[in-house]
Write a protein that binds this DNA or RNA. Sequence first.
DNA 1: CTTACCAGG
DNA 2: CCTGCTAAG
Lengths: 279, 279
Amino acid sequence: MSVAGGRVSRVLTVATINVNGLRAAVRRGMPAWQQECAPDVMLLQELRAPDDVVRELLGPDWHVVHVEAAAKGRAGVAIASRLPFEAVRPLLPVAEGAEEPEGDVGRWVEADVRLPDGRVLTLVSTYLYSGTAGTPSMDAKYAHLDRVTARLVELAAAELAVVGGDINVGHRELDIKNWKGNRTSAGFLPAERAYLDRWYDELGLVDVGRRVAGEVAGPYTWWSWRGKAFDNDSGWRIDVQAATPALAAVVDEARVDRAATYAERFSDHAPFVVRYDVG
Amino acid sequence: MSVAGGRVSRVLTVATINVNGLRAAVRRGMPAWQQECAPDVMLLQELRAPDDVVRELLGPDWHVVHVEAAAKGRAGVAIASRLPFEAVRPLLPVAEGAEEPEGDVGRWVEADVRLPDGRVLTLVSTYLYSGTAGTPSMDAKYAHLDRVTARLVELAAAELAVVGGDINVGHRELDIKNWKGNRTSAGFLPAERAYLDRWYDELGLVDVGRRVAGEVAGPYTWWSWRGKAFDNDSGWRIDVQAATPALAAVVDEARVDRAATYAERFSDHAPFVVRYDVG
DNA sequence: CTTACCAGG
DNA sequence: CCTGCTAAG
């Protein structure tokens, strides 16, 4: 969406990245990646910082909507955009009579931007619960997946919408290097994967990363810090962009920035970058 | 006390050092200092690590008595010696009917070693409370100073004893660079300084650092990590060796290892090293 | 194995 | 402005 050759280019570059602490990410070279990638939109997760720190670190050149978690130093999502926002929605809709679960705050944020051709694009940055199998933390994960899925039903009806983020669930065996060893792990349980089936098969949202990559293992977007997981590419593809069909139809390129010119890993997740030709 | 030229040398090198976390100190180059300094005895404070970690980090070449604090990762004192221990006493005596205050554990440890000439030397490593002026934490500091002083009355009667450690009190104006600005700060309050008057004037213990340095400012042993305190030598002399007169009489050398060949600071305190000619 | 929080210094 | 703890990942 940058001005090039005297006219506005038609490509919108959207990057989703779980920064695992924005302060640490910036310290470790995230700005070098930003320069290299030059995204028009950054869908950010796990900023783990107060709002003033986030705005300071992102700098003045972005329109920013940021939602802190209720607990200090936890979760947090943001959308940073070169295009101004027409509207922002920092929470998922709450069911009648229910109230916002405290832990859900800072895990979902929406913003609408107007494209040069006048159409509206809805952007979502989300950070789903990680959870631990066999513990009560899975209850919060499933309850949140219910709320997320209910909202996706609505968003899937829009012409142009993209939901990006760390969904903390691998959809298929292709999405986890060691899927056999993780059949009973949070992130690859049948009940979790069934939600993604619904998103992609029933609601018709497109898993852009999988569509572009085809039927191959990976490309992974998260690797544990432990051991040599990154070096061995023993990872999980849990950072996605789920786009409406009309948006998915204009995908120009999709890539995982596993290691570009920035040498150091600034997060345990890599950016997942999609170029949409929104002529 | 090392074997040199076929005979046991007569000098015992005793270093006292608040390591501010033994794990961090070792990571940041404490072993290089050890090699350079080659102490026979290390009086260690603020190890902030479990016993197994302390023994692992110090290695097999020391006799070690280590007392953990009741709270994990706090305080902790140890004596590491090339000479074996004849006895160890991990706590201060408790008054009739009283019980050990939880916070006092890991702030005082004694060990007796036998010198080649057959005499016994009592070694003490202690870490007095820091405290914050105007808060209840000063009560614990004064109560502990009472217990320490009562024990010093007994130790002062021994022929050879040295109490080394971080006493968290500056005795005189010479002992704090910015003493004027610290007249109402914990560590330089008249009531605290009065305890040290008693140790040195009434009990006759010798502040080896002051005796060797003479009437000059410093030498400081602690500098805040903040700002340029170390570079400006804006410090406090709060790490001492208080020796019985017979031991103080054979001091061969006393120095603060502010920066020897080890470039990096491995603690906010520097080692205070004394060579005793215990012929 | 990393993040940020916190208390203690 | 460090330490190690803790919870969460």
